[in-house]
Design a protein around this nucleic acid. Structure first.
Lengths: 243, 243
DNA sequence: CACGTCTTCAATTGATTGCTTGACGAGCAT
DNA sequence: ATGCTCGTCAAGCAATCAATTGAAGACGTG
């Protein structure tokens, strides 16, 4: 005990968790699964990789304990293995954005010019929601909304926003949110809404961060079956999910 | 904007931080630097690697923004690049211990049999310290004590404990602490103290965790030059560091 | 049962990683 | 300057990794 080989083995073991996150594609997968569980083929499409390759990445995440699998007939649904994993991924992002100037550049290249896009923080949104003075739009794909969303939000996936613009009550401030800080959906929504004459802003980060700080969320589980993975259940279920 | 290549590049960028931690030797380095800054040769000795190899690992950590370097004459001292990095490493450890059964096995192999070793939590220690009912021993190497320690602790490096046993006041409960949960020093200290007739226990985790939760610490900076990196400064400086 | 779908496995290839060795360079001492 | 120490750099090699392709397992459907 206390020998070199055993110590190395222990730290190798601890490092496997970090190693699993140490690949861009797997990072994308974790970021995606932070929204909701997903079958393999959808993950593959979302990260732009072959199903075979995606499956192997998922196996690796599985071995590292970052995700769990649930079979349903012929499909395997993967999801994050607990809130700790979420926090870990957040810590990685925080350090990266804080320490690497590179990230700013890469984010700008991916997201485009964000000047002129108003953003609000979680705290500001919390205030606004409480005073009922904003319309809150969830512009993520509908399944992610169904898996959990900010209480009181309307689901208007970004794909449908243009033709459903009329559903957004006029005369109100509008706040759009999506997957997170590096997600383009809310940006696009704000641009579209602003062009249509709305006062629009995006939530600075996304749903996972809101849920992590125990903001009011709605996890879509029926009121009489409180077994959801989400902790706080506030707001009317499915309001606006299908108009 | 919004294209695949740019998105991949962004996530590759975020993943570099995780990749830097995704190696057992680099993980050891980060764990070590969580105690205090260190010159390269000491780090190399501590992780059992050649200086050249260690230097390359440090370059990699540097590029990933996890550590910073400070030259002093011919030596480079490395230290962690901020509290966020500390939190990141803690998150990695937490996920690993929670999700990987393997870790328990590896820890047992390295640390040996821990049954019979009493441990106390930070909260319990906090209580005990406040009532002044324990003797608190910092059994890490002296430079680490000097870089920061729990307020009121005596520095008795594990190497010196045996011949300095008489300095430990009898009749008191003794608590030893060291680098963290996977550090053997406090274990050894408790065994030695117990054999000598003391009521001894180890702090469950180590100094970094204590400092992170803003427990009372003493960073060794003179009272009239409050420019230390530690936030809370309590207790008499250097008490017991040299008897 | 045979068929199609979704997923995983296995073999392969090119790129990257971790460590070694040996040389180079920067700063102090004599 | 001439050493000397400490740290970094560069080349090389075995091992590992990410992606591709093609085949093999599962499971539901006709």
């Amino acid at each position: 005990m206390g020998d070199r080989a055993a110590k190395d083995a222990l730290y190798d073991g601890l490092a496997t968790v970090a190693k699993a996150l140490g690949n861009g594609r797997r990072a994308e997968i974790v970021d995606l699964l932070a929204q909701a569980e997903r079958p393999v083929d959808e993950i593959a499409a979302e990260i732009g990789q072959s199903v075979a390759n995606t499956s192997q990445h998922l196996q690796q995440l599985l071995r590292a304990g970052l995700v769990t699998a649930r079979r349903e007939g012929t499909r395997s649904h993967y999801s994050l293995a607990g809130d700790r994993v979420q926090q870990l991924w957040a810590a990685v992002r925080d350090v990266a954005t804080e320490q690497l100037a590179e990230i700013d550049r890469l984010a700008a290249a991916y997201l485009g010019d964000r000047t002129g896009l108003r953003t609000i923080t979680r705290e500001e949104l919390h205030e606004s929601v409480r005073h009922g003075e904003v319309v809150l739009l969830d512009v993520r794909p509908e399944p992610e909304f169904r898996a959990g969303h900010i209480a009181g939000a309307l689901s208007v996936p970004i794909d449908e926003l243009r033709r459903r613009l009329s559903e957004v009550p006029a005369g109100n401030h509008v706040v759009a949110y999506c997957r997170g800080r590096y997600c383009v959906y809310a940006d696009d929504a704000v641009r579209m809404l602003t062009a249509a004459g709305y006062e629009a802003a995006r939530l600075e980060d996304g749903f996972p961060e809101w849920a992590a700080t125990a903001g009011a969320i709605d996890d879509g589980t029926p009121r009489d079956a409180p077994s959801g993975t989400r902790s706080v259940l506030v707001g009317s279920p499915d309001r606006g999910s299908r108009p």
